[in-house]
Every structure is written in C-alpha cells, then in structure tokens.
Amino acid sequence: MAGLTLSLVLSACGAQPAKNVTAQSAAPSLSASATASPSTDVPSPEVPAPPAAPAAPVQPALKTFTFADGHISFSYPDSWSVRTQRGPGQEGHPWQPVEAIVSDRTGADLFSVSSGANGIGCSAGPVNRTVFDKAPAPGMREVDGTAPMFGFIVERSGGDDSYFMAVMNPRNLEEGDVSSQCTLLKMGNGAAQNRVIFNQSVYPNPVPGFLSRQAAKSWMATGQYAQLKALMLSLKYS
C-alpha cells in the first residue's frame, strides 16, 4: 500500500508540477497549524463578576409632633419620644410658652424646642465663631420675612469653646469676631427657640461634650447627628 501511494504522488507530480509544488508546501503548514491549535477542552478564563452595589441605608420610620396651638411641628424617629412642659413666662401674659423635649429610646434628652414665648431678644457678648455645618430650613419663617437656617457652630470666648446646634437667624452663621449667638426666632405666635442639648456633666450623656473641635467634627459623621439634623430641617410653622 505504501508503494502504491508513493506511485500515485509521483504520477501527479509529472502531470502538474506547478500545482503539486504548491500543494506540497501548503500541506505541512496545515498540519503544523492543526497541531498548534489549543484543545477545545481547555476552559476559558473566568471573568470576575462586577461588585454588588452597596445597599441603601435603611431610613427610620418617622412620627410627627405638633404643638397644641397647631403652629410648630416636626418629624422624629418613631423609636424616640416627646414630652411637653410649661416653659418660663410671665403669669397672665397672652403668650405662655410650651417646651417640647425629644428623647431617644433610652430616655436621654436630645433636643428642645419651645413655642409661644414672650421673649423679644437676648443679650450678647463678643466671641469668635466657626461654622461647622449649615443648611436652609424651608419650613420656618420669621414675622419679618427672614428665612432661618440650620447651623452647627462653635464660639470661643475667654479661651473656652461653646457648641450650638439649632435652627437660627442667619446672622448667627457669620464667622469670625462677632456677637454671641441668639437662637430666639420671632414667629407669628410669639418667640420660638430650639437647640440640641449639649451636656458635658450629666450621665448618660446623649450628645457628646466635645473635648476638641476635631471630636465635634467626628460626631458629625454619626447617625445621631444625621437624625438630629433631619429633625431640625423638618421644623415647620403653619
């Protein structure tokens, strides 16, 4: 059989020399190509799956508190609570303030807001003020048309720092050497005041008494800060 095959090849070479040269030179190339081709059984390299999108933060359920006169309201986490008490005022004065105090689930007091006060101003002294955070408070407007703003500030006087976080008149958000803050707002039903309760001496201490400005800035990254800021931005006067 081998001899027969060789004879056939040689016969073909004599009949068509040009075509046979091409065929012979191409044949090894095809053979080499087939030998070099990778096996189809080799698995393809795995492509890593894209990272999963981070889960959206869970927003706490909210409740709404409204003062008995129907004017000032705000929203707060449903695990917190609100109690009211009579604020300071003059007997027989038509404006008798009511104070609402917001506490967390442990009963620690976090925030205070009063409505219907008879105050018309407050005293001030020289301080140096730095503003850590501020934002419009769209639900509040004073009787003269001023739009209050949320702010978190620190004031230095006599070498000591005092921290304030409230919805206040924009003049309290001017930085540098200024007059000390006054968070009294003049509303249609009398004066209103609000503040986060910073307390460095009472335990448990719900809002930290800051040992440094850096500590105050670190607190701004916590969930408690975000919840208190959201509460104050929800303040509304009707």
Rank of each mutant, 00 (worst) to 15 (best):
G3F: 13
L4T: 05
L4D: 06
S7T: 14
A12V: 13
A12N: 12
C13G: 10
A15D: 06
Q16W: 04
Q16A: 08
P17K: 04
T22I: 15
A23L: 15
Q24C: 14
S25T: 12
A26M: 13
A27Y: 09
P28L: 12
S29R: 10
S31G: 08
S39K: 08
D41N: 02
E46N: 00
E46Y: 03
P48M: 07
A49D: 12
A49Q: 11
A56K: 09
P57I: 09
P57C: 04
V58Q: 10
A61L: 14
L62I: 00
K63S: 09
T66I: 11
T66Q: 13
A68G: 11
D69V: 04
I72W: 09
F74G: 08
S75V: 02
S75M: 01
S79N: 07
S79Y: 04
S79A: 09
T84K: 02
T84V: 07
T84Q: 13
G87K: 01
P88R: 07
G89I: 01
G89Q: 06
P94A: 08
W95Q: 13
A100S: 07
I101G: 02
V102A: 02
S103Y: 02
T106I: 00
G107C: 10
G107P: 08
A108K: 08
S112Q: 03
S112D: 00
V113C: 14
S114C: 09
G116T: 07
G116H: 07
G116R: 14
G116N: 10
A117P: 02
G119T: 05
I120R: 14
V127I: 13
R129S: 06
F132R: 11
F132P: 05
A135Q: 07
E142V: 02
E142I: 04
V143P: 01
V143K: 14
V143C: 04
V143W: 08
D144H: 09
G145P: 12
F150T: 06
G151V: 07
S157I: 03
G158C: 07
G159E: 03
S162D: 06
F164H: 14
M168A: 15
N169Q: 11
R171C: 05
L173F: 06
E174A: 11
D177C: 00
S180G: 13
Q181L: 15
Q181D: 08
L184N: 12
M187I: 01
G190F: 11
A191Q: 04
A192K: 00
V196Q: 04
I197N: 15
F198Y: 02
N199V: 06
Q200H: 10
Y203A: 05
G209P: 02
G209Y: 09
L211R: 11
Q214S: 12
Q214E: 15
Q214Y: 00
W219N: 06
W219D: 05
A221G: 09
A221S: 13
Y225G: 10
L228M: 15
K229I: 04
K229Q: 09
A230Q: 12
M232K: 13
L235R: 14
L235N: 14
K236V: 05
